[in-house]
């Protein structure tokens, strides 16, 4: 298996790990958004969705562990590549002009860590129930309600109510929107880059790949931002 070790240590090998883990996380983000958009279908639907996710604790933890593993692979590979990139140009230019690179492509190493920091905040906020940055008016830890067992194997999850409470503060909503914009930029470049890293490109489909990456990134930003905005403006739960 030494060939695999050699490949995964190589620059392109690390990029392939970034692309494959990125693809899995991209899929998760889409699934997560589609699940959450059920808030527009009403309290019962969203609560049932939450209950179905939580009903099989074993499966839930397997999925969580897998996602954590994939995220770790993505982050570790990116750190290794960024360090190599820094070492590849120890002395920078006095002047450097961009011709074609985009703001999104040049800021991947910044948008990534910020989105990761947001992810930690988001998990503490909705899964644990702790507003770690103190952005809300009242500590959300006291208002977020966890699922309760109503009968053997039956759960009651007040997901809808928690979302309304969670997005009651404008500062929290602003932080979520900021993070979603960065996530959109990150995914827009990342998804397009993935095709090239895996060698799946063809000049015939290049514009289609670019359009797909940008399009899905825009849908994710709009879909995810709509929820906190709808709650804050009273469209949902008002």
């Amino acid at each position: 298996m030494s060939w695999l070790l050699r490949f995964t240590k190589s620059t392109i090998g690390l990029k392939v790990i970034m692309a494959l883990s990125g693809l899995a996380l991209f899929g998760f983000v889409i699934g997560h958004m589609l699940g959450n958009l059920q808030i527009y279908l009403g309290e019962t639907t969203l609560d049932h969705y939450g209950e179905s996710l939580k009903s099989n604790a074993g499966l839930l933890w397997i999925i969580r562990a897998t996602l954590l593993g994939i995220l770790t692979a993505h982050v570790v590979s990116s750190v290794k590549l960024v360090l190599r990139s820094k070492a590849a140009r120890p002395q920078g230019y006095k002047q450097w002009k961009s011709k074609v690179s985009t703001y999104a492509s040049r800021t991947m190493k910044m948008s990534g860590p910020i989105v990761l920091a947001f992810l930690v905040y988001h998990l503490l906020h909705f899964t644990v129930g702790f507003d770690s940055l103190g952005l809300g008016d009242t500590a959300v830890s006291t208002t977020i309600e966890h699922c309760s067992h109503v009968a053997a194997g039956e759960l009651d999850c007040p997901v809808y109510a928690n979302v309304i409470k969670g997005f009651s503060a404008p500062a929290i909503v602003a932080f979520y929107i900021f993070a979603q914009l960065l996530l959109g930029m990150h995914l827009g470049h990342g998804a397009y880059s993935m095709f090239r890293t895996l060698g799946l490109n063809n000049p015939r489909y290049d514009r289609l790949a670019r359009a797909f990456a940008t399009g899905v990134a825009v849908v994710i930003v709009v879909g995810n931002c709509s929820i906190p905005l709808a709650v804050l403006t009273g469209v949902v739960g008002g």
Binding site: S10, T11, L81, S85, A87, A88, K99, V100, S193, T197
Partner: peptide, 20 residues
Amino acid sequence: TEQHDAEGFGHCTNHGECSA
């Protein structure tokens, strides 16, 4: 590609500056 790495070059982030 192994020699490329051994020489200390960096990685591709698909900016496109090289081609431009």
